[in-house]
C-alpha cells in the first residue's frame, strides 16, 4: 500500500478507506433490510403488489444471501483495519472528552458485528436451502437478528464519526 502514499496523504488514504467502509455498509444494510422484510412480512398473493412497501418486501431472499455474506466479510475486514487507527487517533481524544457511552456503544458494535460474522456460515446454509420448511423459523429470526445488528452498527458508526469527524 505504500506506493499509494506517493500520491495521496496518509489522512486521505484512511478517509477514503472509511468512506468505502461506509458505502459498503449502506449496501449491506439495504440488502439485509430487504431480506429481513421479505421473511418477517412476506407478500402473500398479488394484493397490493403495486405499492412501494409491497415491492420492497417482495424480493427473493435467497438471491441476497451471497451478497450479504460477501459484504459483511468485506465490511468487517475494512472495519478491523480501520480499528487500529481508531484506537489511537479517535478513541483517545474521545476518552479525553469523556464521551464514555459513545465509546461503549462503539465497543458493543464491534462485539455484535463479530457475533454476526460467526453466524454467516449457518445463515448462508439456511438461505441456500430456502426450500426446506424446517429451516424457515431459524432463517427468519437469524436474518432479522443480522439486520438488527447491521442497523445498530451503521448508526453507531455514524455517531462516532460525527463526534470526531472525517480526516481526524
Amino acid at each position: 500500500m505504500d506506493f499509494l502514499l506517493d500520491y495521496i496523504s496518509v489522512n486521505t488514504f484512511w478517509t477514503i478507506l472509511l468512506i468505502v467502509h461506509g458505502l459498503l455498509a449502506v449496501a449491506l444494510l439495504g440488502a439485509l433490510t430487504h431480506q429481513a422484510m421479505a421473511v418477517l412480512m412476506p407478500v402473500r398473493g398479488a394484493a397490493g403488489s403495486d405499492h412501494f412497501m409491497a415491492r420492497f418486501r417482495a424480493v427473493s431472499g435467497p438471491r441476497y444471501a451471497n451478497a450479504v455474506c460477501l459484504l459483511w466479510v468485506i465490511c468487517f475486514i475494512l472495519g478491523a483495519w480501520l480499528y487500529t487507527k481508531y484506537r489511537i487517533y479517535v478513541r483517545i481524544p474521545i476518552e479525553q472528552e469523556g464521551f464514555w457511552k459513545t465509546l461503549g456503544v462503539f465497543e458493543l458494535k464491534e462485539h455484535l458485528t463479530t457475533f454476526g460474522l460467526a453466524c454467516l456460515p449457518i445463515y448462508w446454509l439456511l438461505w441456500k436451502n430456502a426450500g426446506k420448511r424446517e429451516y424457515d423459523s431459524a432463517r427468519k429470526w437469524l436474518t432479522a437478528w443480522l439486520a438488527a445488528i447491521c442497523w445498530f452498527a451503521f448508526l453507531v458508526g455514524h455517531i462516532v464519526n460525527n463526534v470526531r469527524g472525517y480526516g481526524s
Partner: peptide
C-alpha cells in the same frame, strides 16, 4: 443459531459496564 447470540447480548452489554457511567 440466533437464540444464543441474542441471549449473550445483555451479558456483553454488562461486560462493558465501565463505559455506562
Amino acid at each position: 443459531c440466533w437464540i444464543v447470540p441474542v441471549l449473550l447480548t445483555p451479558v456483553i452489554i454488562y461486560s462493558l459496564g465501565f463505559y455506562w457511567r
